[in-house]
Design a protein around this nucleic acid. Structure first.
Lengths: 211, 211
DNA sequence: GCCGAATATGAACATCGTTCACATTCGGCG
DNA sequence: CGCCGAATGTGAACGATGTTCATATTCGGC
């Protein structure tokens, strides 16, 4: 066996354990609830001692942060595709909202992880902050023109970007918490939810206000 | 000592331990982060054995659920005051949004607990569900007229109520996660945030759309 | 005044994140 | 080729967690 780069996957030195840990943890989040994700569980699934993880991550928080950051980058990718592909602003926003809610509905545990920074131990690590900020910056530049984003300014200075983001995130959370029943045909219901929200958001709520 | 109802606060039978547990846990959430709240910690602060809690709650989840439900009732109270007090719909909505964000900013740990059902162990227990549903129903009836709420219908059938709720919740989360810096004068910044969001929400985003 | 029900205790268990001394393997340098 | 330090993985241990159980104490009604 003249394997040049670690062909065996048992015993010492399994090669690229870091990536295997991340993949295993992500697969875990796809199939189970967030509470099922633990350092020891990931180690067990990979077939490695719990302490081995500490050769690749300083703590569990860092593993979680890496996964959450990847989630933000997926959302950023959704944004970029929509912004680059759909010229009509209204159609673009409607499409993006649907995609966003589909992401949350398809990856509920990951989505919860991304927005549980302070709930779980993992405080905002630089990697998560950066990925999250980037996804917001992309939105700001769509609304206010490319290069308009100033990191020193609070998000409140970009009210449109802030409002869509808040609206989508709030709706996603309610969906995951079961306040919005998606029923037995999720892909249809999620689209309907997105459209309903966008109908209000684009035209304004004043027309629906009582009296 | 002819104390008719347990005057001593040490030894066996401390009297109304349930309420003292809830109060202690709530005080804990006011002063520390959500991660500091644990069954053993509450027991320690009250001065009681951890297992004593199980005489009043079936599990830690039930204690958390009781606290979260109380939080929802506080929000419901904010709603009722606004709806009953302010006749002008726009002013009413603006006021309520400010109050909502103030609540989240003033009780960050409690707010996080309320919206972490599936993150923490505690799955949606009936008490939390009921309190959450009630706070939504109050909103629905304001938008669509009293008695219009039908619990068998999904929230998607009340798009205005759903949208404000989503918007406020999403903004609150971003605020707590530091994506919206409230600065050194929170009470001012929170109001500004609420107003900025409502400016978009009431008039619609179409007017701000690029091009 | 007594007895069952309610309540509190303390020890135990499994699980968790983390640390440490130690074992193994890899990679480069003589 | 062989060796040696660095990288990587192991296994035992520690403290903390939620939960359970047998036991002890106190309360309330007869």
């Amino acid at each position: 066996m003249t394997a040049s780069k670690s062909a065996v996957q048992y015993g010492y030195h399994k090669g690229n354990l870091r990536d295997r840990l991340l993949e295993t943890a992500q697969k875990l989040l796809q199939n189970e609830e967030l509470s099922a994700l633990s350092l020891r569980r990931v180690a067990r699934d990979v077939g490695v001692a719990p302490s081995a993880i500490y050769n690749h991550f300083k703590s569990l928080d860092e593993l979680l942060a890496a996964i959450a950051a990847d989630g933000y980058r997926q959302i950023e990718a959704l944004e970029r595709v929509a912004y680059d592909t759909i010229a009509d602003p209204e159609a673009c926003l409607r499409h993006l909202t649907r995609e966003y809610l589909h992401f949350a509905a398809s990856n509920p545990s990951l989505y919860r992880l991304m927005f549980s920074r302070a709930v779980l131990g993992y405080r905002a690590l630089p990697e998560v902050d950066e990925a999250g900020d980037t996804s917001f910056r992309v939105s700001v530049e769509w609304w206010y023109g490319s290069g308009s984003y100033d990191p020193s300014k609070s998000a409140i200075h970009y009210p449109y970007a802030l409002a869509v983001w808040s609206l989508c995130h709030g709706a996603a959370m309610q969906m995951l918490d079961g306040m919005v029943t998606v029923g037995e045909a999720p892909e249809i219901s999620v689209d309907a939810l997105a459209d309903a929200l966008m109908n209000v958001f684009l035209r304004g709520a004043l027309v629906g206000v009582p009296k």
